[in-house]
Amino acid sequence: MALKAIFLNCSLKSSEEESNTEGFMKDVQTHYKKLGVESEIIRLADYYIAYGVEEDMEDGDEWPEILEKVKAADILIVGTPLWLGEKSSLATQAIERLYGSSSVTNDKGQAIFYNKVGAAAITGNEDGAKHAAASLLYGLSHIGFVIPPNVDAYWVGEAGPGPSYLEAGHGNDFSKSAIQRLAYNTYHLANMLKENPIPAEGNTL
């Protein structure tokens, strides 16, 4: 059975506007397609997501349908633009809502996100990519995702105002290499966990 990857695009723009973060994610998808990984990008700004840390907050909250796709996936990539050197508010909200499910268990009694692989994809025109990646990857690890090496792929361009990711022709050699490492390392580790999941001994809730 093919691996499944879900991208959460935490751009503040709806799908009516072009998103550099989505362009970055589509470049990761190019590698996944070659590897036979099924993937989908979800633009969170297109959904009504309530504030809080519960699985289902209120009538009209659309997070539960997004969560079901995350639960069905083997790989989760959280993508965010940078604002004042930080991940977007939607990225923070996504981590908070994922955290709300961290007490839910799988059939072995482990956290529901065990044996899933996490990664971060970041775009911007300013510093802060490593800071945002550290925040995202720690959050994912804390709730049960496994983090491979070199899955903090980003592009920020030159210091100061300048062209965005898509305007810059989809980044440069550094970002292209980072995208490839993210795709292959998440793919390899997800395959390993499919064949040899983390034993339940010592880590059930």
Results as ranks from 00 to 15, higher is better:
4 K>D: 15
187 Y>I: 00
74 D>F: 10
187 Y>K: 04
13 K>G: 08
153 A>I: 05
167 E>R: 05
6 I>G: 04
17 E>C: 07
109 G>H: 01
144 G>P: 06
84 L>T: 14
188 H>A: 07
91 A>K: 02
78 V>P: 04
151 V>E: 00
60 G>F: 03
133 A>I: 04
160 G>T: 03
188 H>R: 05
95 I>P: 03
26 K>C: 09
203 N>T: 03
24 F>E: 07
78 V>N: 09
165 Y>F: 10
111 A>I: 11
142 H>I: 11
46 D>S: 03
65 E>I: 12
64 P>Y: 00
49 I>F: 13
87 K>Q: 14
77 I>L: 10
6 I>S: 05
94 A>C: 00
146 V>H: 10
159 A>G: 14
183 A>N: 01
115 N>S: 09
8 L>W: 07
92 T>R: 12
118 G>E: 11
156 V>F: 03
9 N>E: 03
169 G>F: 08
177 S>F: 03
49 I>Q: 07
53 V>Q: 15
142 H>C: 12
29 Q>A: 15
125 N>L: 09
132 A>D: 06
77 I>V: 07
72 A>L: 09
32 Y>W: 06
154 Y>W: 12
94 A>E: 03
197 P>R: 01
82 L>A: 08
179 I>Q: 01
189 L>R: 00
198 I>C: 01
130 K>C: 08
